[in-house]
């Protein structure tokens, strides 16, 4: 899933500037699961904003609305009837959702309430961890199912650097060394000899390096 963090309240207030009529748009997908931009968080942020402006003695209006998804046009289109009543759309979706809403309402200000961070998994209630960088050319078959690109701070493809210590990364003692995880897993699988294979220079064209990516499935098109 896509994981994000809600922006600090003061940053959101600063971003909104003099706009006092806000359509606060949540998303029912990833950001709901990671607890930053679903219906509940929309309610919390709306209350914070109302209290802030009431305390300041200023008029303020916020409409709470949570879409099934902000990455599909048919859901975004559902707010077309009342979007004109507001100065700004404050989206609590990931960066993809924020942009797609902006594309749908070209003359409307659209602002992000969330910092989109990574593609990851839920480790436990309230804890998420990065797993994938979407490089577009998966090598997990060679590395025991642990990604060196996403999980090594230097994205090293041929083994741990000299800073791996006690299973932890030199960058942060709380972070597992991705290569220690790979070696442990290859050992468990009886495949440690695979470590001897040199992973060749990567073709980053499948990644973001070739510019924004687009995928077309002709068999699915209407």
């Amino acid at each position: 899933m896509i994981v994000g963090n809600r922006k600090e309240f003061q940053e959101i207030v600063g971003m909104l500037g003099s706009n006092r009529r806000v359509l606060l748009l949540g998303c029912n997908e990833c950001v709901t699961v990671c607890g930053v931009g679903g219906e509940k968080e929309v309610g919390v942020l709306a209350s914070e904003l109302r209290i802030h402006w009431k305390t300041a003695g200023e008029t303020f209006e916020v409409k709470e609305h949570t879409l099934e998804r902000q990455c599909d046009y048919e859901y975004i289109d559902q707010v077309r009837g009342f979007v004109g009543d507001y100065d700004v759309i404050l989206s609590m979706a990931c960066g993809a959702g924020v942009q797609y809403v902006a594309e749908a309402y070209k003359t409307k200000l659209v602002m992000p309430a969330v910092n989109t961070t990574f593609l990851g998994v839920t480790l436990e209630q309230g804890v998420w961890s990065e797993r994938c960088q979407g490089c577009g050319a998966c090598i997990l078959d060679m590395t025991g199912g642990v990604c060196p690109i996403a999980r090594c701070a230097k994205s090293l493809m041929n083994g741990p650097c000299g800073g791996s210590s006690g299973g932890k990364c030199e960058v942060d003692k709380e972070v597992d060394c991705g290569w220690q995880l790979i070696i442990d897993r290859l050992t468990e699988l009886g495949q440690l000899d695979r470590y001897e294979d040199i992973i060749p220079v990567k073709d980053w064209r499948s990644s973001r390096e070739a510019g924004p990516r687009k995928r077309i499935r002709e068999d699915l098109r209407l």
Binding site: N158, G159, P160, C161, G162, G163, S164, S165, G166, G167, C177, W179, Q180, I183, D184, L192, Y195, E196, I198
Partner: peptide
């Protein structure tokens, strides 16, 4: 770095 972990693959790493 002969002192970094995992120690058991450090010679293999040099081999690569």
């Amino acid at each position: 770095n002969p002192f970094a972990d995992p120690f058991e693959i450090r010679a293999a790493r040099l081999g690569k």
